[in-house]
Amino acid sequence: MKKLIFLSGTKGGTGKTTLALNSAVLLAFLWRDVAHYPVAFLDLTPNVGTAALILLGDPLATWGRPSLSDFAGGNIADPLRAFYIRRWNTEKGAFQLVFTYMAQDVPLTRRHLEYVIQMVESRLKPKVLFFDAPPLSAGSPLAGLVDYVVPVVTPDVSAVEATKSYVDLVGGRRLRPVLNMYIPEYSISAVHGMPWELVIEKTLGERPHVIPFDKLLQAARQALEVEVLKLRPGESPGVKALAEYARYLAATVG
């Protein structure tokens, strides 16, 4: 089992959750015949993260269900009791993703995380475990627990700087960075005096994968839907770019 995280350091709003959730769903679909639970997803955002809300499908669905907060708070001994299956039926067959979330703001220690990872690996046996965490700073319990890190930035100086400062925070192999919410009309950084793609390449050491700003992704988010399951690449350049990145992940991580 490979462990992967999308990271922007202390910067929020760069699209980590969108990237993580859509990549997880795309890989779960791609590997639907390879493993029973090809992808596991840990939403570590306190008080129910967006990814968990989308996967649960209803903001009220968290009511009365055990979550990882219950494991962290000592209310449940087996963390897998806090895992749920989201299944989709499509014209090309059914596929599923297993996930968990934090219903309350209870600190999850490194020991807790190690135990959860161990349980997921031994009992669910996924090919990949995705972490979706809020902005991270020094002292994160995830440090040393991930195999791959995807730096995610937007065309924003502070996002680039925050990601650069914290990209090695959790360890793991650095994958191709993502330049998200890119607006082709504003391709040059006024601060650096060069194209954003070059700024990212100079800062993070590799040419980024570009995901253009796409109103349809925003619309799908408002509807609490997984973008790649409701929008076609032909109508949404954002979905097209997400699928391209998932193919890269499948080739690199799988």
Partner: peptide, 18 residues
């Protein structure tokens, strides 16, 4: 026009193109 959030919500799930 582009689909609204409401229209996206009502769309059926389709197999992703990957």
């Amino acid at each position: 026009q582009e689909p609204t959030p409401d229209e996206i919500k009502r769309r059926p799930v389709s197999a992703p193109e990957i």
